[in-house]
């Protein structure tokens, strides 16, 4: 299906992606082309076909509910953009 400019702006918002104004027409075109490609599936009869989520139809393996990780906060936060007192910093959320 062909997308409108407003569809692309809405999708970009849902995905939390900033798209420059001048990029919107290009994305509208290529996303429409991709949706036209995947829409070929609609012609296939899939009545009674069980959806396949996992190639080996495996079930989720569970482990014992015990502590298995050591605290690596400092190491993991060493790559964070902004940290203070062991906390990740973001712009003020509550005024």
């Amino acid at each position: 299906m062909a997308l409108e400019r407003s569809d692309v702006e809405k999708i970009a918002h849902l995905a939390r992606l900033q798209i420059r104004e001048d990029e919107v027409p290009g994305y509208t075109q290529t996303l429409s082309d991709i949706l036209a490609l995947v829409d070929q599936l609609q012609a296939t009869d899939t009545t009674d076909v069980e959806p396949m989520a996992h190639p080996l139809d495996a079930v989720q393996r569970l482990r014992a509910d015990v502590v298995s990780e050591t605290n690596q906060r400092e190491q993991l936060q060493s790559v964070a953009p902004a940290v203070e007192n062991g906390l990740f910093l973001v712009p003020r959320v509550i005024e």
Binding site: L17, T44, P51
Partner: peptide
């Protein structure tokens, strides 16, 4: 960005059955 947007669209409310579920059936 293009693939994130295609995926976001395919998983958005009202489209899941038409896209993701259909694709998983084709996968079978």
């Amino acid at each position: 960005k293009r693939r994130i947007m295609v995926g976001t669209y395919a998983l958005s409310a009202g489209y899941y059955d038409a896209y993701y579920r259909k694709a998983q059936q084709a996968r079978r």
